[in-house]
Computed example of a mutant assay.
Amino acid sequence: MKNHSTGRLGGFTLIELLVVVLIIGILAAIALPQYRLAVEKAKLGKTLSLLRSVKDAQERYLMANGQYATQFADLDISLPGNPRLVSATENAPWPGQQASFSGFSIDLLSAAKFVYSNIRLSDGSSISFGFRLAQSPSSNGPALCIATMGDNLANKLCKSYGVLHMTSSESWNYYTVSL
């Protein structure tokens, strides 16, 4: 179609198309990392909810029995799906049991007074969350988030939960976070 005022055909010039492509590229470069972080955080939400339930069940077990449970079967919750349960060996530092799910595992480290989860991220790396068990069921203390020092995604995820305190070792960052 011919534009009568300028005498040229309607449409977009190459420069206009390049500017649009450039703008889309800039927006994608900004949005994709945030989208990936949001997707991973949503996947973590389900795991953290189950981890908190296990922690609360451990506290109830303590009140009823005077000690923490070393087996998931002793707790008053049911684990979703059909997790693979593995007991710690006798030479392990703490007795306990691990429940392995698709994408994450939860460990009962009763003697260490800790409930711990290791979660695989979409990029193949992992992040760990843990709750310290207190001697009273009213304790809703902060959680511990552990990330490998060079793993940017895991460290960003830990920081996204609101860091209360951070320490580092040679290869790990330990974040005390509020969940």
Results as ranks from 00 to 15, higher is better:
Asn91Phe: 05
Ala134Ser: 15
Leu62Phe: 15
Leu51Trp: 12
Leu85Ser: 07
Ile146Glu: 11
Ala29Met: 14
Arg52Trp: 04
Gly96Pro: 00
Ile30Met: 10
Phe101Asp: 03
Gly11Leu: 07
Cys145Ile: 07
Phe114Tyr: 07
Ile119Met: 10
Tyr68Val: 05
Leu17Glu: 07
Lys43Trp: 05
Leu18Ile: 13
Leu14Ser: 05
Tyr35Ser: 02
Asn3Asp: 15
Arg8Trp: 08
Lys2Gly: 01
Gln67Met: 01
Leu50Glu: 02
Asn173Lys: 13
Trp94His: 09
His4Cys: 03
Asn140Tyr: 13
Leu44Val: 06
Gly81Val: 01
Ala57Tyr: 00
Ala112Ile: 05
Pro137Met: 10
Phe129Leu: 11
Pro80Trp: 04
Ser117Pro: 04
Ile26Cys: 09
Leu50Gln: 03
Ser171Thr: 15
Leu50Trp: 04
Ile77Ser: 00
Ala154Ser: 12
Lys41Met: 04
Val39Thr: 14
Pro80Arg: 06
Ser168Glu: 13
Ala154Trp: 13
Glu16Trp: 12
Ile15Tyr: 03
Asn82Asp: 10
Met63Trp: 07
Arg36His: 02
Ala143Ser: 13
Ala134Asn: 11
Ser53Phe: 04
Asn65Pro: 07
Ser125Asp: 14
Ile30Glu: 03
Gln58Met: 07
Asn91Asp: 14
Leu144Gly: 03
Asp76His: 01
Ser87Val: 11
Trp172Glu: 07
Ser178Asp: 11
Ala57Thr: 00
Ala88Cys: 02
Leu44Thr: 08
Leu179Ala: 02
Ala99Asn: 00
Ala111Asp: 09
Ala38Arg: 12
Arg84Pro: 01
Asp151Phe: 12
Leu133Ile: 03
